[in-house]
Write a protein that binds this DNA or RNA. Structure first.
Length: 680
DNA sequence: GAGACCTCACATTC
DNA sequence: CGAATGTGAGGTCT
């Protein structure tokens, strides 16, 4: 995920200047360097003098840069070693098997034997070693044992952007796969529910997590504006390690000289917090709420409440995560990391039920990039498009898409991109129809997961390629969607990419890369964004076009070389040798080349990045009794609103052709993985 | 070290 | 659709 709050062409995915802004705000550096060596608690006056070993408090004095962990250090990408042998997750044990074989699964899980190693009381550098406990779930050992954990011990303690991305992408890949199995009821009931918890449990048991060392302030690799779709995601990247609790803290384990200090809170609306203001949050303490076996009671100054109280006295920063109702899925919440806050005051008041409730007034530390504030602005723009500053056109598609796409320039005076014809689907000439016997499935009521009588599901190797939420489960050489001759209705789960835009997009002027594309809505990993529409041409015509000096900057070419990246949880499908899940695979009838110079859709505005947040996937479905390939774009990871959408344009597979080499351009993606150039 | 306790989840059902 | 409900997880703490 990329930080995504810049209004003005912040080059995602990694705007270093923005992160630099955050750094000085970090104040109290290791308060508890080590539980065993920590000096007794001291509370210096804000203006000093400060006891040795303590940094002064912000804002009275800035911490010295050398004491601030450098979020922007060159990152060591996690080395990714796929398992030696493919281990499909489909191989779940039945409960009977698992119960009869508990010892074996424990043994096979490897690290689980090491739980004696450290006392659970030790904190600091050894804290993560105790975590390698046994999973509660009885999985086929082949799933867990073969899995090489690509997270080093150091990365487990302290993350980087790449490690955080890796953890989240792996988590959601596994979660989607489990969810797919659950939908298909391929797993014994009861084992499959809550794929989020199960995925997190499997990975965390293997030590597949980061930032386990709890800390006050900045969490390396997590950026303000990052979004999460499950509480477990917050745990896995060390942003907030309580799986349910709203307040997370360190210290205070019963000893008097070690007071608890809050590190983070999640405001999700369970208590009546006041979360309307973008910079101020009135947060309720924990406890006292009515549960099944307990009536409403007064809150006590203990646990999280005590930690918040102590953090207020010390003017410590507290990370704030705001839970927001997901408009696309009203049952669910999206968690937005809104940066650091300080607690300005606290009081006790009578809640609705008459019981005493703690209240904390948290105020956002200034000079941080906007996050929640962006959401508030977008809310207004969506109500009334003309309130969007810099708006040129409310809908540049002139109604061709199901959802309007704004054209905005809040950067300079340019009035819009060069003229082109908007078309929402690719223009194929007859010669490109795929010779393929086309036949529909027979599902009258819509295709249901696990129904192997459905020929469309069978074409997708027996899986429904999308989850119930319409999220793509795995990258594949080809995804088969239902077509017009399928009797399933338009609401069929296998009609995701053909049903048009789902998120509110904006074409905007970037600061140095022409026009770009971004979204007002949050986009979760695997969600469909748009397809690539243009005129389909063949290789020869492309070559000729370029030799004639046509300066076409809107080419899509699936036959280029694409940087491999791991997205599916399943090892083997998209492995180290496979490229973009496409080229070189015999499943692909023919490469797809399109130009969107004269005819195209929003996808023509997506810029290149060497570390993109969007990937393409070939999709096929039949139209007018002939099948055509489509290029559909899906989110690599969760993408916060207003983050520029980018994909990898790929590199040329055959070097030496001058007309092609001329199309190399200097890359401005600014990511740590930048190759230095890209190909138009 | 085992287990009780705490908790602003989530999905499903009504 | 909101409320009710059941099954949860990691961390804290005894």
């Amino acid at each position: 995920m990329q930080g995504g709050s810049g209004f003005n062409a912040v080059p995602p995915p990694f705007d270093k200047s923005r992160v630099l802004d955050v750094k000085p705000l970090r104040s109290l550096r290791p308060i508890f360097p080590n539980a065993n060596e920590a000096p007794p608690f001291l509370c210096p006056s804000p203006s000093g003098p400060f006891p040795p070993g303590y940094s002064p408090f912000y804002p009275f004095s800035m911490p010295s840069p050398s004491e601030t962990p450098d979020v922007n250090q060159p990152e060591e990408p996690p080395t990714w070693t796929p398992p030696a042998a493919p281990a499909p997750i489909r191989a779940f044990r039945t409960p009977e098997m698992a119960n009869g074989d508990v010892d074996q699964s424990g043994k096979e899980a490897g690290p689980s034997n090491s739980k004696k190693r450290t006392s659970s009381r030790t904190r600091g550098s050894t804290s993560s070693q105790k975590k390698e406990k046994r999973s509660k779930f009885h999985l086929d050992p082949a799933i867990t044992a073969n899995y090489v954990v690509p997270i080093s011990q150091a990365q487990r303690e302290d993350g980087t952007r790449d490690v955080v991305d890796c953890v989240l992408i792996t988590f959601d890949g596994l979660r989607r796969r489990l969810s797919q199995l659950e939908d298909a009821k391929e797993v014994p009931s009861g084992l499959a529910r809550r794929s989020d918890l199960r995925a997190a449990n499997i990975l965390m048991t293997k030590g597949f997590r980061t930032n386990m060392r709890k800390r006050i302030g900045v969490v390396p690799g997590v950026e303000i504006g990052d979004i999460f779709f499950f509480r477990m995601e917050l745990c896995m990247v060390g942003l907030h390690s309580q799986s349910m609790g709203g307040i997370d803290w360190i210290g205070g384990k019963g000893s008097l000289d070690e007071e608890p200090l809050a590190v983070s809170i999640v405001s999700s609306g369970y208590y009546d917090d006041d979360a309307e203001d973008k910079d101020v949050l009135i947060y309720s303490g924990q406890g006292g709420a009515m549960t099944r076996d307990k009536p409403v009671g007064d809150q006590k100054l203990e646990r999280g409440n005590l930690a918040l109280e102590r953090s207020m006295r010390r003017a410590n920063e507290v990370r704030v995560i705001r839970g927001i109702r997901d408009v696309a899925n009203p049952n669910a919440k999206i968690y937005v990391y809104d940066g650091l806050y300080v607690i300005q005051e606290s009081w006790m008041e009578k809640g609705k039920s008459g019981a005493n409730t703690f209240k904390y007034k948290l105020v956002r530390v200034p000079r941080q990039p906007e996050a929640f504030a962006v959401w508030k602005s977008i809310e207004k723009w969506k109500e009334n498009v003309s309130s969007r500053p810099g708006l040129i056109l409310p809908d540049l598609t002139s109604g061709a898409e199901t959802i309007a796409v704004s054209l905005v320039n809040d950067f300079d005076d340019e009035k819009g991109p060069a003229y082109f014809n908007y078309c929402s689907t690719p223009k194929y000439s007859k010669t490109f129809a795929i010779v393929q016997s086309s036949y529909g499935c027979g599902c009258r009521k819509g295709c249901t997961a696990g129904d192997l009588n459905c020929s469309c599901i069978r074409k997708n190797s027996g899986d429904l390629p999308y989850t119930t939420n319409g999220v793509l489960v795995s990258r594949k050489p080809l995804v088969y969607e239902c077509g017009p001759s399928c009797p399933c209705g338009a609401n069929c789960k296998i009609r995701v990419s053909q049903s048009g835009l789902k998120v509110r997009l904006e074409v905007f002027k970037t600061k140095d890369r022409g026009w770009g594309l971004r979204s007002y809505d949050p986009i979760r990993a695997g969600a469909f964004i748009c397809e690539y529409a243009g005129e389909v041409i063949d290789k020869d015509r492309l070559k000729k076009k370029l030799q004639e000096g046509d300066n076409d900057e809107y080419i899509f070419d699936s036959s280029r070389s694409y940087e491999p990246f791991k997205w599916n949880y399943e090892p083997g499908l998209v492995g180290e040798e496979a490229t973009n899940g496409a080229s070189g695979d015999s499943d692909i009838p023919s490469p797809v080349i399109m130009t969107a110079k004269d005819f195209g859709n929003v996808a023509r505005f997506m810029n290149h990045s060497c570390n993109p947040n969007v990937f393409w996937q070939q999709v096929i479905y039949e139209e007018n009794n002939e099948s055509f390939l489509h290029i559909a774009f899906f989110a690599v990871r969760h993408i916060p609103p207003m983050t520029e959408l980018t994909y990898d344009y790929g590199t040329l597979s055959q070097e030496g052709d001058d007309s092609l080499n001329l199309r190399k351009k200097k890359c401005l993606c600014g990511t740590s993985k930048c190759r230095g150039y890209f190909v138009l």
